[in-house]
Simulated assay, not measured.
Amino acid sequence: MKKLNKVGKFTLSMIILLFVIEATQLVTKRGSFDIDDFILNIVGALVGFGIWKTKIVQRLLN
């Protein structure tokens, strides 16, 4: 996680991870490749990243 400390690297890695998950759902026919899920998951990951980077959480982790 230390390498994903910047928002740009984090976002890129989440886009790749979520694309792989959505493509796997499409190939295995266990779900569908839904752009809404993709967008909402990216937004959720960025909100989580923002919370993780707050001073309160960082103080609790140290």
Rank of each mutant, 00 (worst) to 15 (best):
V47M: 11
S13G: 05
L60Y: 15
M1H: 13
F33T: 00
F38E: 15
L60D: 13
I39A: 05
T54F: 02
M14A: 11
T11I: 05
V20I: 05
D34F: 04
I15E: 05
T28L: 10
L61R: 11
V43S: 08
K9L: 15
F33M: 03
V47N: 10
A45K: 01
F10Y: 13
G31W: 06
L26D: 11
G8I: 04
N62T: 04
N62R: 07
K6A: 06
L18Q: 10
V27F: 01
L61Q: 12
R59H: 11
F33Q: 00
R30Y: 04
K55T: 14
V57A: 06
T24N: 06
F10R: 01
I51C: 10
V57G: 04
L12V: 08
D34H: 04
G48W: 09
V20N: 03
L17M: 10
V57K: 01
F38Q: 15
G48M: 12
V43P: 01
I16K: 06
V20H: 03
F38K: 07
T28C: 05
M1W: 13
G31P: 03
G31I: 02
T28A: 13
I56S: 14
N5Q: 13
L4I: 01
I15M: 14
S32I: 05
K29V: 00
K2Y: 09
I51G: 07
D36R: 10
L17Q: 07
I21Q: 01
E22H: 08
I42H: 02
G48I: 10
T28Y: 11
N5W: 05
N41C: 07
K9P: 03
A23V: 04
L61T: 12
I42L: 14
I42A: 02
L26H: 14
F19M: 01
I42Q: 03
I51D: 14
T11P: 03
T11K: 01
F38G: 14
D37H: 03
V57E: 02
K3V: 09
Q25N: 13
K2P: 12
R30Q: 08
A45R: 00
I35H: 06
L46K: 01
L4A: 02
K53G: 11
I21G: 00
V20C: 07
I35T: 14
I39N: 08
G44I: 02
N41T: 06
